[in-house]
Nucleic acid binder design. Sequence first.
DNA 1: CTAAAACCTGACGTTGACGTCAGAGGCAAG
DNA 2: CTTGCCTCTGACGTCAACGTCAGGTTTTAG
Lengths: 138, 138
Amino acid sequence: MTEVTGKVPMRIGELAAKAGVSVRALRYYEEHDLLTSVRASSGQRHYPRDAIGRVRLIQQLYAAGLSSRTIVELLPCIEDGEVTPALLERLSRERDRVEEQIDSLVSTRDRLEHLIATATRARDVGHSCPGWVGPPPP
Amino acid sequence: MTEVTGKVPMRIGELAAKAGVSVRALRYYEEHDLLTSVRASSGQRHYPRDAIGRVRLIQQLYAAGLSSRTIVELLPCIEDGEVTPALLERLSRERDRVEEQIDSLVSTRDRLEHLIATATRARDVGHSCPGWVGPPPP
DNA sequence: CTAAAACCTGACGTTGACGTCAGAGGCAAG
DNA sequence: CTTGCCTCTGACGTCAACGTCAGGTTTTAG
């Protein structure tokens, strides 16, 4: 049976599974100072439980288009609440970038939506009858 | 002086400038069947005026995370309104993907926003607040 | 104790959307 | 005709975020 979040230290495989990323990704994060681990005498990595949240956060920031270089700058600020004016600037800029991205995506979604609606209408109406005949769908 | 959207056919440099992409990008699009051009006897590419809109559309779809392979599948459908059931399926799937992406980005933005607000308050008041509180696991 | 599973460190491979360079040809102006 | 910019076709370079493989050690299940 799988270890029930026991007292044994969390190793890389467990963290990977629980955070939903690959083992390779975790080692990559460590290489790039996004994530730290305590090493056992044998060299194996041990993680605290909150590493799961940290990895999820990293993933979320990646998904928002931030580079690992940017993330590594913002992470201490995000986790420790340590904020210099410069970092606050950076945070604001990234938020603005994310906002723009949202707007762009919304417009794209609307475009796709409209397209789908049009095509669906065309299919429902235009197949059996040309033009404008038949009852509208409920 | 710059040509005033004249009668001379639009060449690659002009299209690049007007659509806001590089010349290299346009050749790349043509290589991957996202964009077509008429060739002069000398081999130079000529574009119709609406190529500008097409390029902008391509950019928008890229920004939404679609690959060129996906775009090339959907483009005829988007521009000509020619939709098979399979393509309609594809459109819907992409729309759903975009929706999910929007949700994720909104949550990221809120997280950043909250962080900025907290940090700003902390700065105004004088000391930093306790660190970040993560979302509950699903 | 042993075999399987998990982990380690390099180090090279992958993918997408271009950037960049080389070498050659085309086109309007003076 | 020459100058200077634009364009052409290859073809190699780049960058990020990992994937994958090799060859060896450690931990765990039975």
